[in-house]
Amino acid sequence: MSKQATIRSTSDDRAFDAIVYAIAAVIMIIVLYPLIFIVSASFSDPARTLNGEVWLLPKSVTLDAYTNILHNEKIWTGYRNTILYTAVGTFINIIMTILAAYPLSRPDLPGRKVMMVIITLTMFFSGGLIPTYLLVKELGMVDTMWSLIVPGAIATYNLIVMRTYFQASIPWELQEAAHMDGCSNWRLLLNIILPLSKPILAVMVLFYAVGHWNSFFNALIYIRDEALHPLQLVLREILMISQSDAVDSTVGLEDKILLAESIKYAVIIVSSLPVLMMYPFVQRHFVKGVMIGSIKG
């Protein structure tokens, strides 16, 4: 390759890199700005937020919204319930997904292709809300934590991703060699497959944990006892009550409207903070897991 061609290639690469960085910067701003705005608005004087004065940094810093939220005992009850539901639910999800994905990844399992077709159909068709509720009710799980965990014990998409990882990343020859050495299926799974599957396990923990943490619709349907409400449902009720109080009250109407406005942003921060703190630790595994599920069948 001539010197002139090399210089042209280098210039093209630099121009391409510059375009990529510019696009990435624009996307980063689009993604980060709403989060920065919400954080700033939650600490700002709600009157200045409503007037459009808050763009990037907080204006007239105040902690009234967080004080009102964190002094509410229901918040701490909701946190405790959500942590319990997330921990127990994620543990059950991981165990059930492993026990389903590993056999389906083995080429010596009879009828596994038919099973995968049947399992995949559940991503597109379900019994519906009313039959599901009737089933949960007949099983005696209404007003218990199990109504939030058992119906979603296995997510079909996560099952497919984990099965694909087992197939693509763990050589079948390794499993055959282990069997020839007298290794049982359980020992093979526990001592060989799972230690080699730490990246996908981290991805599954993130997927399931975030799903449990953000879930409120199932609790809205199945949980009537306020002592069992998860955090998301508690925060939803606080937000609705603060807004309705602002509308119904004739005394201090303006102050109540302003407080409801600031509570709206503080509620988002309070509910999202644990997930935002956890995500950086599994981010690299998260990207790898998504690519596994999207590229290979």
Rank of each mutant, 00 (worst) to 15 (best):
Leu35Arg: 00
Leu35Asn: 03
Leu35Phe: 15
Ile36Val: 15
Ile36Lys: 04
Phe37Tyr: 15
Phe37Gly: 01
Phe37Glu: 12
Phe37Thr: 00
Phe37Lys: 02
Ile38Met: 14
Ile38Pro: 09
Ile38Gly: 08
Val39Trp: 05
Val39Leu: 15
Val39Gly: 11
Ser40Asn: 06
Ser40Asp: 06
Ser40Ala: 15
Ser40His: 00
Ala41Ile: 12
Ala41Cys: 07
Ala41Met: 03
Ser42Ala: 15
Ser42Ile: 14
Phe43Thr: 11
Phe43Ser: 12
Ser44Tyr: 12
Asp45Met: 09
Asp45Glu: 12
Asp45Pro: 05
Asp45Ser: 11
Asp45Tyr: 07
Pro46Met: 03
Pro46Leu: 08
Pro46Val: 09
Pro46Cys: 04
Ala47Asp: 04
Ala47Gly: 06
Ala47Leu: 10
Ala47Lys: 11
Ala47Phe: 07
Arg48Val: 03
Arg48Tyr: 10
Arg48Phe: 10
Arg48Met: 12
Arg48Glu: 09
Arg48Cys: 02
Arg48Asp: 07
Arg48Pro: 00
Thr49Glu: 08
Thr49Ile: 12
Leu50Cys: 04
Leu50Asn: 01
Leu50Gly: 04
Leu50Arg: 07
Leu50His: 00
Leu50Gln: 09
Asn51Lys: 04
Asn51Val: 00
Asn51His: 02
Gly52Pro: 00
Gly52Thr: 00
Glu53Cys: 00
Val54Tyr: 02
Trp55Gly: 04
Trp55Val: 08
Trp55Thr: 04
Trp55His: 07
Leu56Met: 05
Leu57Glu: 04
Leu57Asn: 01
Leu57Trp: 14
Leu57Phe: 14
Pro58Glu: 09
Pro58Gln: 07
Pro58Gly: 07
Pro58Thr: 03
Pro58Met: 05
Lys59Pro: 01
Lys59Asp: 08
Ser60Tyr: 13
Ser60Lys: 14
Ser60Asp: 15
Ser60Asn: 14
Ser60Cys: 02
Ser60Gly: 10
Ser60Ala: 13
Val61Cys: 08
Val61Glu: 13
Val61His: 03
Val61Thr: 12
Val61Lys: 09
Val61Arg: 05
Thr62Leu: 01
Thr62Trp: 03
Thr62His: 01
Leu63Glu: 04
Leu63Arg: 03
Leu63Phe: 15
Leu63Thr: 13
Asp64His: 07
Asp64Val: 04
Ala65Gly: 13
Ala65Val: 06
Thr67Ile: 15
Thr67Met: 14
Thr67Cys: 11
Thr67Ser: 15
Asn68Ala: 15
Asn68Asp: 12
Asn68Gln: 15
Ile69Cys: 09
Ile69Phe: 07
